[in-house]
Design a protein around this nucleic acid. Structure first.
Lengths: 215, 215
DNA sequence: TGTACATCAGTGAACGCGCGTTCACTGATGTAC
DNA sequence: TGTACATCAGTGAACGCGCGTTCACTGATGTAC
């Protein structure tokens, strides 16, 4: 019978290698996009024989899941850090968190595309990705939560700490989707010849949305 | 010296084969997504030897361009046809064209993803795709044009027939991006556990946008 | 209308590539007594 | 502290696959006189 408490040292080493794999995969994702990501090239770059990587990752799909979770965490963490120094005016906090979203997306276009672009064909995201995804929405909800005076949350989005009525919740969701719509249009190149100054356009819309959200 | 007027019969036959290729490619796109699209499998399905397809398409990228143009045209045409029977109230026309956008996207998810999702890595859309893309925006602009009483258009979006001021134009663009944001979120599965009735949510938001646009 | 020639569609073989995944294996590392 | 054993990381070879693209070629189709 195997010992139920695995070796600490092996556990640590293992986690380190998984982290290396994820980091290298992310690097390749940033260079070539999700479709081109291959286990073989990750292994190669890590100086490992191609089959060795199967000690750590069960399949290509599992590596993609790792990357998706990682991307959500990076983005969520970035938004949270941005909010730390944002003062206590809801409108300012909204500007800052929305701006941080756009900046992160521009800095990590393939990570953004991986999670908010078209799904990788044949890949179905497991439920492990839901938690990290919510982290992003929680950050976006922060200014609204604050404007509402942190009421006791109920309803479908209670985990976000929001307590608006159904109608007001639809407003919030629609406004968030506009945010992602704008970022996607900019990143995916749908504004050629229409919008010249993306930063200005985005800032202008973010303020309009702040009005709409009552911030 | 070759004749400058090519044979009519050959020209017709050629166009028919190109249409066959596009149709088969679209079918495969609908089944497996853009990343899995291959010249070989299109040729195979057409009963042609793999190299034969190079008589009609210079490369895989060119086939992708064909598909993108085709998708824009399909969507643009769908929106235009929807508007034909929409009566003359701007608000109704807006509801109909927005609804047709969502319906088309749900019916052709991979076509939608091809043009409004993340770009295919390594592929850069040539300028041939701009014209067909504008056709979609022209249809979305129809209700606004009508509400404005078809004034003489000027400014950056004159080709859409819109004549609003810069600020009002930003409103329009932002609202359109919300539309695409909502459709993308629904199609790409980002609303799990948040929105149950997508049709109702979308209709509700479309009406809110109509108010915002003054329709 | 008939013939010589040019054009073009489609063939078949080949090049060189990278991929995901499996499997039997060798050593090194940790564990239990 | 020392030894016998179990576990695990990483190897190397292999399977079978499909891809994009090139190239020299055979016939069929159209064109010019």
């Amino acid at each position: 019978m195997p010992s139920s408490v695995p070796s600490k040292a092996r556990e640590v080493a293992r986690a380190a290698v998984v982290a290396d794999i994820t980091a290298e995969a992310r690097r390749q994702l940033a260079r070539d996009g999700a479709a081109a990501l291959s286990l073989r090239s990750v292994a190669r770059e890590l100086g490992m024989v191609s089959s060795g990587i199967y000690r750590y990752v069960a399949s290509r799909d599992e590596l993609l899941t790792l990357l998706i979770v990682d991307a959500y965490d990076q983005l969520g963490g970035t938004l949270e850090r941005a909010l730390e120094w944002a003062g206590d005016q809801p409108r300012i906090r909204w500007r800052i968190v929305a701006g941080a979203l756009r900046t992160w997306a521009r800095d990590h276009p393939y990570d953004y595309a991986l999670v908010y672009g078209s799904p990788v064909p044949g890949y179905a995201a497991p439920d492990d990705t839901i938690g990290p995804a919510v982290r992003v929405y929680r950050a976006l909800a922060d200014p609204i939560r604050q404007a509402d005076g942190n009421p006791r949350p109920e309803g479908p989005l209670a985990e976000l700490g929001l307590a608006r009525t159904d109608g007001a919740m639809r407003d919030v969701l629609g406004d968030w989707m506009q945010l992602f719509g704008m970022v996607s249009f900019e990143l995916f190149g749908h504004t050629k010849g229409v919008i010249e100054d993306h930063a200005a356009f985005y800032a202008d819309r973010v303020d309009a949305l702040a009005d709409h959200l009552g911030l």
